[in-house]
Write a protein that binds this DNA or RNA. Structure first.
Length: 321
DNA sequence: ACCCAGGTGCTGC
DNA sequence: GCAGCACATGGG
């Protein structure tokens, strides 16, 4: 079991940040979380300010430490933001303990193809349905009577975590189902994208992984864009959440509305008698990208983290309405 | 009935 | 390059 602090790793904020679709609050428990990645699963719990990763040191070192991005100094990034940028200061403060996870490559490719024109709860359902149809079933092996607690103290953590679960599909398993194999999962027109991209992933996997290993993100981007259903925005998400490209800055509808509302030119509101009201000018996607470069270009090396701060802040404040 | 959702592909200019 | 449209499906 590994211990850390909420200010270093905040499971609530990460769970709701929109970067991961297979992280859940376990069985309605407010402070127990399940993280699924490929064919692995991690239980995370919080007690006050203490956060626990329920795995052995070996498993942590071999996989989760990098996955959870525990080696990066987020405090330094936070200290670099412009104090005059009120919105970013607020978003950064609200994002304390938020980290950019290093998720599985194929899982991110499929998940973000699914994500287009869908809301996050709906994305989660589709991803889960894919796992149930194409993933490997994992039977929970834990003993019902508290293992390793012969002293009777500290009951083992298992509330809601003792159910069987499915791993994320391999590209081979999806490809093997054929183009018709994806029907009935509410994927809509994305069925074809997922099937064709699964097939293509098998072909280009080596080149793609080599480019990721070399941090040649230009090549990574080119390969991703050659896959059906992956455009600029989805490619940016994949690079940020699976390839370690912390400079990747996905521009989606939420970012566009932030750039329009918080960083756009205002025009006088002709409908306001006192002329005090000003309305944000309409912003196109390409104009929003330009503004992003102008406003956030200075955060070289971690602009993708800045994106997550403002994105997560935006969707969290939207909920309270 | 209408509008929007962590967009992309395709066409036509 | 950029605007305009179709594309499934679910939720307000």
């Amino acid at each position: 079991m590994i211990k850390t602090d909420v200010d270093l790793f905040n499971p609530d904020r990460i769970c709701d940040s929109g970067q991961i679709f297979r992280m859940y609050r376990a069985g309605g428990e407010a402070s127990v979380f399940l993280i699924y990645s490929g064919d692995k699963r991690l239980v995370v719990s919080r007690e006050g300010r203490e956060v626990f990763f329920h795995c052995g040191d070996d498993e942590y070192e071999a996989y989760w430490r990098h996955y959870l991005d525990m080696d990066r100094d987020y405090g330094y990034f936070a200290s670099q933001i412009d104090p005059k940028d009120d919105f970013l200061v607020r978003a950064c403060a609200a994002g304390k303990g938020l980290r950019i996870l290093n998720q599985d490559l194929f899982e991110m490719i499929v998940s973000f193809i699914v994500s287009q024109q869908k809301q996050i709860p709906s994305i989660r359902k589709c991803v889960e349905a894919l796992c149930e149809r194409f993933g490997t079933l994992h039977e929970d092996k834990s003993e019902p009577d508290g293992q390793g607690t012969s002293d009777g103290r500290q009951a083992p953590l298992r509330m809601g975590t003792d159910k069987s679960w499915y791993g994320f599909p391999t590209p081979q398993s999806i490809a093997a189902g054929g183009p018709e194999g994806l029907k009935g999962l509410s994927l809509g027109y994305r069925e074809r994208y997922i099937y064709e991209t699964s097939c293509r992933f098998i072909e280009v996997e080596k080149d793609l992984r080599d480019a990721v290993a070399e941090k040649d993100f230009e090549t990574v981007g080119k390969i991703l864009l050659s896959m059906t259903g992956i455009g600029e925005k989805v490619a940016e998400c994949i690079k940020l959440f699976a390839c370690g490209d912390l400079d990747s800055f996905p521009v989606d509808t939420h970012i566009i509305s932030i750039m329009e509302r918080e960083y756009g030119e205002k025009e006088a509101n002709v409908h306001s008698k006192q002329m005090q009201g000003s309305l944000p000018k309409k912003m196109t996607p390409s104009r929003a990208r330009e503004r992003v470069r102008e406003v956030f270009g200075k955060y070289k090396g971690f602009s993708g983290l800045v994106q997550q701060w403002i994105f997560a802040y935006e969707i969290s404040t939207q909920k309270r309405r």
